[in-house]
Design a protein around this nucleic acid. Structure first.
Lengths: 215, 215, 215, 215
DNA sequence: AATGAATGAGAGTTCATTCAT
DNA sequence: GATGAATGAACTCTCATTCAT
C-alpha cells in the first residue's frame, strides 16, 4: 500500500484550505523557502526573508501555510512522493538489477542534492511541534527506506543480494552510505564521490554471502 | 602530530579563564546541557532550561561559558580528545586487526550513544557564529575520521583492507554505517544493531578485492 | 556652509529607512521618550516605559529606531537644526542688535526649556556608543555655539560687543549663563530668571571695553 | 550656620556603621571609584570594576558602603565640606576683595578640575534613589552657592559688587561661568581659560551699576 | 486577495547584591 | 574581616503572527 503526502499531512492537520495547498503561489513561496532553508538553519531564516525572497507580502504566506512549521515541513516534503514513485517504478522494471539499483540510487542522490535540507531534517527534526511533526516525518523517511528496500528485495529474489539481512536494514545502510558520500566526502577524489563507487562498495557487502551467513 | 582541544578552541576565542573551563561546576552545567541538547534542537533549548536542569542560577552559566554558543560547542566537543586518543591507541596495538577494529568501533559507538548530540552537530551546525564554529567543528570531525583511518591503514598494511580506496574514504564510510546503525535502525532486530554486524558488513566491502580493483 | 542633521547622522549610521525617520509614529515615540528622558537618566528609562508612554507595542519602536541609543540620540537632536537656522536668521536681520540678541536668546531658552534633556546631554553623554555619539554630539553643540557666535559677531561689527574676546568664547559664556538661569535659578525671583536679565548681565560684561582691553 | 556632610547624609540614611565611613579602606575604595566615575558614566562602571581598581574583594565594598548609590554619592561628596570651609574662610579675610574672589574661584576650579564628576552630578542626578538623593545633593550644591555668595556679599558691602542683584543669583551665575570655562572652552586660547579672565568678565557684569539699576 | 505596520511573548545576557567559606 | 562564586530580577531586542486597510 502506498503512503502519500495526503495521508501524512493529516498528522499535523494543516489549517489551510486544500485548494490552496498546491496553488502556484504556494509553490512560489515554497521555492523561495527551499532556497533559504538550504543555506541556513531553520531558526536563522525569518519569515521576512521568505517574503522578500518570494516577492510576496508577509500576510500572504499565512493564507497558504498555517505557520512557519507548516511552511518548513511542506517545503521539505515536497517531491518525496515523486521520489518514492520513481523508486517504485525502478523496482518493477525488467532491466538488469544493477542498472535498476544505479538508477534508484541516482534518483535518491539527485533528490538529496537538490534538497540538502531534507537530509538535515531526516535526522534532526527542527520543528517544535514535536509530536505531530516527528510522527509525520518519520513516516516519510520510512516510505523512502521502504521504496529502496523494494528495489533491493527484487535483487534479492534474483540472487544478487544476500538473504540473511532484511532488505529494510540493507536499504537503511545504503541510504547511509549515499548520505555519507554526499555530505562527508567533500574532500575525496571525484572517483569516490560517484554513485557507481558507492554501489560497488555496497554490493560487495550486500551481495550474496559465498560461504557463511551472518547470524 | 596530534591536534587537541586547546588548539581548536582558539578558533572562537573563549572568554573564560582557563581554570574555570573544566571545573566541576562547568561539567555539571555541560552535563545538563548535554541532556537537553540531546533531546531538542539548539534553539528550542533556553538558557533557563539549562539553569533549571543543572540546578544553578542563570548568571552562573555565564561565569563558565561566554555565551550560549560557547556552552553548546564546548558541550558538544567535550570528550572528543579522549575518543581520538582511544582510537589512536587501538591503532598501535599488537592484537589481530579485527579485534582492534571492533574496539575502535565500539569506542565510536559508545561515544555517539552517550552523546547523540554530537551526531546531530556533525551534520547540522546550528550556531550563528558560523565561520569560527564550522571551521572548529570540521576540524574535530576530521580528527575522528583520521584517527579511525589510522586503524584502517594498519589493517591495510596487514592485507586485511583493500588498497584501492584511500583509508580516509573508508573511514568516512564506516562512520556513516555506524551512524546509520545507531540512528536509523531503531526498528531493526537487535542482531543488526550490534557493532559486530556493521563490521562484518563493512569488511565484506572493504576487505581486499579478490580479483579486480575499483577504478 | 550649513551642517544639517543629515550630515551628523552619518556618524552613527542609521539602520532605519529614511522615510520612517520622521513619520508621525516616530515623532509620537520621540515625544514620549522626551518626556521620560527629561525626568530620568538614560539607564533608568526602559524601552518598556517608552512603549507604555507612547502607547505603542514594544516591537514598534524597533521599526523606527535601530536601538535604544538611536532613539535617545535622535530624540535629543530633534529640532537642533531648526534652532540653528532660527539663530542664523536672527543674525542677518536689520533690527537693532539688542533686539536680535534677545530673540536669539529666547530661541535658545525655549529650545532648552522644552527639552531639558538636551542640556543634560550637552555635558553628560550617556550612550555607550561612545566614539560615534560623542563626535556627533560635540558637532551639534558646536553648531549652536557657532550660530550664536554669528549673532554676536554682527553685534561686534556694530560696536556693541567688545572685540578683545573671540565671539566663540562669548557665545559659550552666554550659553553658560542661559543654562544657569534655566537650571539653577529655580529659587530666585522671577525678575532674575527672565531672559532680559541675562542679556543685561551679559552685555555689561561683553559690551565694548570703555578704557582697556583684556590681555 | 554651617551645614556639614553629617547633616546631609541623614537624608538617605547610610546603613554603614559610622566608624567605617572614613576608614582608610573606605577612602581607598572611594579613590578608585573617583578614578572610574570621572571617566565613564554611572551605569557603565560596574562594582567589579571598582573592586579590581581598588584591589579589594567584592564583598568588602559592601562593608563600607550600603550600596552602589551610597558609594557614588559619598565619592562625589567627599571634599565638599573642605571646599565650603575654604570659601568661608576667604570671605572673612582682610585682603582686597578681588584677591579673595580670585582665590575663591581658584578653589572652586581646582575642586571641579580634580573631580569633574561632581560637575556632572551637579546637574544630572544619576541615582535611582531619587527623592533622598536629590534632596541631599541639592543641599550640597546650595552650600557651595551660598559659600560663594558670602564672598560676593562681602564684596557688595565694600561697594565692589552691584546691589540690585541678590548675591545668590550672582553666585550661581559665577559658578555657571566657571563651569563653562572648565568644560566648554576646551578649544579656546589659553588666555580665556584662565580664572583671571572669568573674573574680569564677571566683574564687568557684576560690578556696581554706574547709572541705573536692573529692575 | 494581498499587504506590511503593529504586536508582545519570550529569548539571551548583565550586574548589584548576598553569604558560605 | 575579607572574599568572590552564586544569584535572579531586570534589561534590551527579535520575530512569528495578526488584522485593519
Amino acid at each position: 500500500m502506498e503512503l502519500t503526502s495526503q495521508f501524512y499531512y493529516s498528522l499535523w492537520e494543516p489549517k489551510v484550505r486544500n485548494e490552496l495547498k498546491e496553488s502556484p503561489k504556494a509553490i512560489q513561496i515554497m521555492q523561495a523557502a527551499e532556497r533559504l532553508f538550504a543555506g541556513g538553519r531553520f531558526h536563522e531564516i525569518t519569515m521576512e526573508d521568505v517574503c522578500r525572497c518570494a516577492g510576496v507580502g508577509k500576510g500572504t504566506i499565512y493564507r497558504y501555510f498555517s505557520d512557519k512549521d507548516d511552511l518548513f515541513i511542506r517545503t521539505a516534503v515536497r517531491g518525496i512522493d515523486e521520489l518514492v514513485s520513481q523508486l517504485k517504478s525502478h523496482a518493477g522494471e525488467k532491466r538488469p538489477f544493477e542498472s535498476r539499483l544505479l538508477d534508484a540510487c541516482r534518483s535518491v542522490c539527485s533528490f538529496f542534492k537538490s534538497r540538502r535540507l531534507i537530509l538535515h531534517m531526516m535526522q534532526s527534526q527542527n520543528s517544535h511541534k514535536r509530536s505531530a511533526f516527528c510522527a509525520g516525518w518519520s513516516q516519510y523517511r520510512k516510505s523512502i527506506v521502504s521504496a529502496l528496500a523494494d528495489v533491493l528485495s527484487a535483487g534479492s529474489a534474483e540472487g544478487m543480494i544476500r538473504k540473511d539481512v532484511p532488505s529494510n536494514v540493507l536499504s537503511n545502510l545504503l541510504l547511509g552510505l549515499l548520505r555519507t558520500t554526499a555530505r562527508d566526502l567533500t574532500d575525496a577524489a571525484e572517483t569516490f564521490r560517484r554513485t557507481e563507487f558507492v554501489i560497488e562498495f555496497f554490493l560487495r557487502a550486500a551481495g550474496p554471502a559465498p560461504d557463511k551467513e551472518f547470524s
